[in-house]
Design a protein around this nucleic acid. Structure first.
Lengths: 225, 225
DNA sequence: TAATTAATTTAGACTAATCTAAAAATGTGT
DNA sequence: ACACATTTTTAGATTAGTCTAAATTAATTA
């Protein structure tokens, strides 16, 4: 039936998938190119091929959307990526800022058996080390509806850090530096509307956080004590 | 300095390495082609490239030998392959006949940090699930000098199964079927010289074993009780 | 040693993935 | 709605790896 994608094709599908989360109407050639650090002509070429294989819907100049099959393939890659990240952190003691590149390689080993056994070995984790949800074997993704970016959270309320949007090494190192990690309790003391920076309290220490940071931290309200 | 080999180049280096164990004078084009299921012209081409990169010594029509650097690279691949095999069997509960193809993919993820952490996580195993020695981080390989193929073992003596040379699924399944696995105790009842088949006793059951099997099983003398 | 066979290399072509430079289509602002 | 900027696609070239068919070298055997 449908052939299996190459590693490169998997990367394109994954990029289109993640771009589509914010722009369901379709991923543009340039956005994909930026994401994959490739040139627009390379992307244009590849979109034609992916369309021919039935993995995306695509009309010239109109951007790309995943087909049902394309989405399945992309979600499998995401599942593998996130499971390997959990493995690297939980079992091999890597830190959350070191695992991305390794997982980028491990994610391309395509074996349902391997993936599912790894999943079981890790005790069926629901999120990866950055708080991103791990698709289950059927491809379902459990998004946490209660999660909001910190810069939109309620003044005075108490939150738990449940995810980060920016998974770059530099950002994660910055969070380590401030003592923040998944599960940290945060109280939002003040929001400075003009630049969307925030004043928060973590572990009884107060901290002024830039808008870039506050926008890239996902929090969930803590139940009142 | 020396660039890093591609996955394909790693496969060639590994093939030359393992062929060189039996024929230290050099691996022939055809032998490499057979091993990699490629054609002779493909191999011929690649040998020129590997020579240009300084990883093999090679003169036209004379076969290939690994350079010092080439050997290092090959041994690293072997190390990764065997560590992943241990992981798959010990942690993910794969059986010894299922791990080869997965390890062929995992072995190409080149990260010293990953490899060494995996090694530690597995508690520094010395052999893989087929009894093959795992090179240490410095590239040293501890061969078991006492191991001999079963068809050359001494009549009447008692042995431990310490390795298999043929790691094909069919052969390993056959061994499972007979109840043999790494560590099994074997008594060599009779050797039939004319065809190198043997009569052995395992777990108090006697068994007639074909020459192919007896040649591909490595045993080590058990200390007398 | 000459002839034949086997092994190996060269020649030429193909696919996947990439790039730069140029052309074409789309979108925007006055 | 026209001109201009932006985005995207086409054209053409490159690299890695592979193949088949043909030529060449090495080995064997009469």
């Amino acid at each position: 039936m449908s052939a299996t994608p190459t590693h490169v094709e998997e990367n394109y599908l994954k990029a289109i998938f993640s771009l589509s989360l914010k722009h369901p109407e379709g991923a543009s050639t340039n956005d994909i190119a930026r994401r994959l650090e490739a040139t627009a002509p390379s992307v244009s070429d590849m979109l034609r091929k992916l369309k021919a294989k039935g993995w995306i819907e695509y009309q010239k100049y109109q951007g790309a959307r995943l087909s049902a099959r394309g989405r399945e393939l992309a979600v499998e890659v995401v599942r593998r990526h996130r499971l390997w990240e959990v493995f690297l952190v939980e079992k091999l003691n890597f830190s959350w800022d070191e695992v991305h590149d390794l997982a980028e390689q491990l994610e391309h080993i395509r074996s349902g058996e391997l993936t599912n056994r790894l999943d079981a070995f890790l005790d069926f984790p629901r999120v990866d080390p950055h708080g991103d949800p791990i698709p289950d074997a059927a491809g379902n993704i459990q998004f946490d509806a209660a999660a909001v970016p910190l810069h939109l959270a309620d003044q005075g309320a108490r939150y738990e850090l449940v995810g980060v949007k920016d998974t770059s090494t530099s950002f994660l190192r910055y969070l380590d530096h401030t003592g923040l990690s998944l599960g940290s309790h945060i109280q939002l003391m003040d929001r400075l509307e003009f630049d969307q920076s925030v004043l928060i309290e973590v572990h009884d220490k107060s901290l002024h956080m830039s808008p870039h940071a506050s926008k890239n931290i996902l929090v969930k309200p803590l139940p009142h004590e």
